[in-house]
């Protein structure tokens, strides 16, 4: 009896693992398919511009406001801790490095996944549920090229821009709190920051991260929408899955990328 239920549980774990691996594999295949169907997106870039508007511009407010707040909190917390070591002037370094290396790309990507990613999934899912994708196919137009690829590229292009805006806004937030509010020396704040933040190792790597996250989130969002079962529940389930899988993918990729960036290729 005990053996049987243990076996059943182990089987459940195996089953779940297989499903996850299968899902990841299917997403990667879908990503490859999207890339092969991307010619239209670049020949008719207005399609992509439209999607940059819906994915990027419409996420602007939440990114800017969140960035400002995160930067302010970092400034406050950093100052509080650094004060104990008499090095509160390094608060600029702390704020800038945490934002540029980690928080900028990661938090911006998480916000992007829940704001724009879910919207992409819902839109494509609804187009599928209302047979718009089938209609397109019957008009001899490949929905992968006309619907999926522009949304994918819109997301990929928007993500690094949003992440950089998030970081810049956060540093302004940190500056406001540390320098304007608390009174850390203005010159020391910036000069220490500049001495510590390296363009290639910190800023460029941060941008690379956000680009990878952009690819992951856009691929997951379009995949979930395209594969959603064509019902109301199917679409809402797919939207939830987009947010959950994207968030997990972002955090897992961040770990891998960080490990490589600290040890590996650079």
């Amino acid at each position: 009896m005990v053996l049987e239920s243990t076996l059943r549980n182990i089987r459940l774990v195996g089953d779940g693992t297989l499903k996850i691996v299968e899902r990841i594999g299917a997403t990667v295949v879908f990503l490859g398919l999207t890339l092969t169907q991307s010619a239209t997106s670049f020949r008719r870039f207005d399609l992509v511009i439209r999607e940059i508007f819906y994915a990027g511009v419409q996420s602007l407010i939440i990114i800017l406001v969140s960035g400002l707040f995160v930067g302010m909190v970092l400034g406050l917390q950093g100052h509080e801790t650094l004060q104990n070591y008499g090095s509160e002037q390094s608060v600029g370094v702390l704020v800038a490095l945490s934002l540029v290396r980690e928080l900028g790309p990661v938090v911006a990507a998480l916000l992007f996944a829940s704001r724009a990613g879910s919207a992409i999934t819902a839109e494509i899912g609804l187009m599928k549920a209302t047979e718009q994708l089938s209609a397109m196919e019957m008009m001899a137009i490949n929905p992968m090229a006309r619907v999926v690829a522009p949304r994918f590229w819109g997301g990929v292009i928007s993500m690094p821009l949003l992440a950089m805006l998030f970081s810049a806004m956060g540093i302004i937030g940190g500056f406001l709190v540390a320098v304007v509010l608390i009174g850390v020396d203005d010159g020391a704040f910036w000069s220490q920051m500049q001495a510590a933040v390296d363009f290639r190792h910190d800023i460029a790597n941060g941008i690379i991260k956000s680009l990878v996250f952009g690819i992951a989130v856009s691929a997951i969002a379009t995949f979930e929408g395209y594969e959603a079962s064509p019902t109301a529940e199917g679409v809402s389930g797919a939207t939830t899955r987009t947010v959950v899988s994207s968030s997990l993918a972002i955090l897992a990729l961040d770990l891998v990328l960080t490990a490589f960036m600290l040890k590996g290729w650079s």
Binding site: L161, A168, A195, D198
Partner: peptide, 18 residues
């Protein structure tokens, strides 16, 4: 949006970075 993003890049590169 793109100009803002580019501006943020410049800020990061020259004001924050080295």
């Amino acid at each position: 949006f793109v100009l803002l993003g580019f501006f943020a890049f410049l800020v990061l590169a020259f004001k924050v970075g080295n």
